[in-house]
Design a protein around this nucleic acid. Structure first.
Lengths: 142, 142
DNA sequence: CTATTTAGTTATCAAATGATAATTAAGAGG
DNA sequence: CCTCTTAATTATCATTTGATAACTAAATAG
């Protein structure tokens, strides 16, 4: 097993991950928001509170575009902006109640599809999957 | 370990996979093509020959948009269209020599970044990673 | 105090993407 | 032959996304 062979396995693997992720999340998002807006909300949901700068670093977008999308999300009442009391240039972004509700609904849809996907897996299979995820998470995707 | 906990691990894991994939592939593609065009070329490279219908199924795009992107790729001399001799409605798409060269270059860039990423991994680590990929590939992302 | 840097906004433009209707051509079933 | 279905194309339009310049306001360094 050399690194080149492993690389080919990885390519095939990441393709599968992307495909399955797409199947799980397909149409899970509300039609009120675009895909990028969903990605931003997902990032906020997991890491809140976050600053606009953190969002554009992680989502690889420019500040002007981040600012625009956050404005749209704010206009849709899905997020709230809170000013930093120490550094008044900074803001913190949180999901609003509506935003939390929307993301909870989306995650519930995705989770039920996931449950369906592993419904026939044995206890041992699930343990194998968990261990494998832990290994890759720490040794490759950290 | 219940399925709900496993689901949360999976969400975190897929996020990491997407982030690392993005880091590995960032700027690896030529500026002559768009991201979607790169995805299509990647799909063709791995599965060729493919039909336009297969592309729109796997890339989740509509036939008209697939057709448009394939026309652009064809105009850029990156792919070749071959008519099916039996069913004359069908086509088969292959990479041209230019297309192969472009994708080989991209894959080489991505692979060298991957090698760098695992340069400090021990033999045992690499074997663990390989086994973990195999497990997830067969038990979860199939 | 002044210059520079940092965080974020606004405006604007080009390009990419998504969606739909209408069309061509050919295979399949009766 | 006739109808229906399938594979793909063309044209068109709205929306999303990416990129850039110009700007405000606040912190920081000298």
């Amino acid at each position: 097993m050399n690194k080149n062979t492993l690389f080919h396995k990885l390519v095939s693997f990441t393709t599968s991950v992307h495909r399955v992720t797409h199947e799980l999340t397909k149409n899970a998002k509300s039609d009120l928001i675009s895909q990028i807006q969903f990605n931003i909300l997902e990032y906020i949901a997991v890491n809140q509170p976050v600053t606009p700068s953190e969002i554009n670093d992680c989502q690889n977008m420019s500040m002007p575009n981040t600012s625009r999308e956050l404005r749209k999300l704010s206009e849709k009442k899905l997020i709230e902006k809170i000013n930093d009391s120490e550094d008044r240039r900074k803001q913190y972004i949180r999901l609003s109640n509506d935003g939390e509700a929307m993301m909870n609904e989306a995650f519930a849809t995705i989770e039920s599809r996931f449950i369906k996907r592993v419904q026939n897996a044995s206890k041992e299979d699930l343990e194998d999957i968990e261990r494998a995820i832990d290994i890759l998470q720490t040794k490759l995707f950290n």
